[in-house]
Design a protein around this nucleic acid. Structure first.
Lengths: 277, 277
DNA sequence: AACGAATGTCCCAAATAATGGGACATACCC
DNA sequence: GGGTATGTCCCATTATTTGGGACATTCGTT
């Protein structure tokens, strides 16, 4: 038979303590179809249900739009699933999903944690957990910053076409608060990112590592390590970062933090449906 | 955004000829959650099942990852649905075939590109490539819209019998969200298509040209140019469109875009086995 | 601090809803 | 034309669900 997508894909070996056999079976059926089993016979086999029963479910699912039936070609996932999937994405309160991970990271590092997404050419902070090191960063959820001048921003840029990097870099250098509605916090002398050649070189490294640094390029005295968070589509939808005062962030510690931050970001990605492939 | 707990959203009033009550109920439950009903009581009400039964299904669905349960906040769609939704998209060969063409169009125009198919009296968006003009359209894959009120929809109508045009036009005017599964997020004041005589006249032009326009008839400030995609059988199976804010879409540009969009659509048709007669 | 509303949990007897074994008619593949 | 995978229907049997209720909790409000 067609050895398409291998077997053993969506096993769903779990024990069913439930009292909803039919529902769960149907759902499992959908998963097998998602895994590439498209013929009645195969599905019945995977499910362990007789042809009769299997076919009945199949028909119902098609009638409701959860499956698409191509006469003599087999079954495919239907458009209702596309719709639900999209809704699921929308409903996912990123902040809520992220919280536990952020807290875990905060607990492990003791530093300030940020969660942000890209909005236009800027980072938009969605959440923040203050560090326990005494000093407080004046960042806050709801704030914006140029993408190219923050750790989170650079992590987010890893998900953008490389062609845009130069432009974003330029914006971060020149535009020091142009038409930015946000009342600037204070110090007018914001540091600038390094010149383009070096910036590009660093970004290349960050891309290779899977996490990014910020070496006092945005705020003097503050360094941070960030990593991108991906969703089911593989696109970067957010980024998280661990930031602290330079004294607490020697080079060695930053290098050590990289894998940890990335691992946390990846865990979040998983919660969003991402599958490393 | 805020998930207004609308009513009348995903009714699914259909008659259940099936022999799979439990499965269908569970699926309907998912749809209500997608529509924004997040509390047990509300769901039970919508479903017409007792608290006991409802809760049992809820628990099973959560256990399987189809729902996400936030302790005292209610239920949300789970990540398994995000996954299935993604797979559903992947399984549509059309999406895969279309991608490169859409990307090419996006690169050439810099605007937002959409791919959609007809489902009943509506357009079903399958894919979208956001434009590079900064502004973001709130459309998304998995969404539905009346056929007669979008550029893609009109392009799709070119493949339907002329006899149905009037009916579809009427539906787009009157029905402001009938049994539409999409919880509409915003303004209730959606523009209407032009009166029938003029609508018909324009459609005739579109048919002659091989592409269609949308002049802020669906969304104020948004104009678009669309063209139908045909398969080997010659039937219209999908449509693509280039959309942007009115300032970027002066009449002259729309006229120029027509041939380009159509050429891209034809290229896709070719990939699907279509041969211009 | 107390109270009411909404939920999370468990039980269980009844009966409804799903099961699965078959018989047939078709549509394809070779 | 023979073989095979499916689409369709039936039906008696029984396993699967159902749904009413009692409690323990938790939360928001008074």
């Amino acid at each position: 038979m067609t050895m398409d997508t291998d077997d053993t894909d969506p096993p769903d070996p779990a024990a069913k303590p439930a009292g909803t056999q039919t529902l769960l079976r149907g759902l499992t059926l959908l998963e097998w179809v998602a895994a590439g089993v498209t013929d009645v016979k195969g599905i019945a086999a995977k499910l362990g249900t007789p042809r009769s029963t299997t076919h009945r479910m199949l028909t119902s699912l098609v009638a409701e739009g959860y499956l698409h039936h191509i006469p003599h070609k087999g079954y495919r996932l239907g458009s209702k699933l596309i719709h639900l999937g999209q809704k699921a994405l929308e409903q996912r309160p990123l902040v809520a999903i992220a919280r536990p991970h952020l807290e875990s990271l905060a607990a492990q590092t003791g530093d300030t944690i940020h969660l942000g997404v890209a909005e236009g050419d800027e980072v938009f902070y969605l959440d923040k957990i203050a560090g326990t090191r005494g000093l407080e960063m004046r960042s806050r959820a709801g704030q914006r910053m140029p993408l190219a001048s923050t750790g989170i921003g650079k992590a987010l840029m890893l998900g953008l076409p490389v062609a845009r990097w130069a432009g974003l870099h330029g914006r971060a250098c020149g535009t020091n608060g142009a038409a930015n509605g946000a009342g600037d916090t204070g110090g007018a002398n914001r540091p600038s990112p390094p010149p383009w050649p070096e910036f590009a070189a660093r970004m290349a490294d960050y891309a290779a590592w899977g996490w990014a640094f910020d070496l006092e390029e945005n705020e003097l005295g503050i360094r941070c390590v960030a990593a991108p968070v991906r969703d089911a589509g593989g696109g970067v939808v957010a980024a998280i970062s661990v930031a602290s005062a330079t004294p607490y962030m020697p080079d060695a510690r930053m290098r050590a933090l990289g894998p940890l931050v990335r691992a946390t970001a990846d865990a979040m990605s998983g919660a969003l449906g991402w599958n490393a492939e």
